[in-house]
């Protein structure tokens, strides 16, 4: 698989996690990190999005040193 394809798949993951996932996690318990389950689920995706974007940033050839903009 080329890098662009991989980046697209990575970028799609949070969309699935948030837009589809919400149908399955709409509940208050169990509490996670002290928060209702649905809220902690959203928070996990916020953190994962940052992680995924970091990975994308480092595999993207455009961000390599001296790459032309």
């Amino acid at each position: 698989m080329n890098v662009n394809g991989l980046m697209r798949i990575l970028a799609a993951i949070p969309f699935v996690g948030i837009l589809i996932g919400v149908y399955f996690v709409n509940r208050v318990t169990p509490y996670l990190f002290g928060m209702p389950f649905l809220l902690s689920y959203c928070v996990i995706w916020v953190v994962l999005t940052s992680v995924i974007m970091t990975v994308i940033y480092f595999i993207d050839p455009k961000n390599k040193e001296g790459a032309a903009e």
Partner: peptide, 9 residues
């Protein structure tokens, strides 16, 4: 907090 994530991607 959900929509910002997707917008930033």
């Amino acid at each position: 907090i959900g929509y910002g994530c997707l917008a930033y991607i």
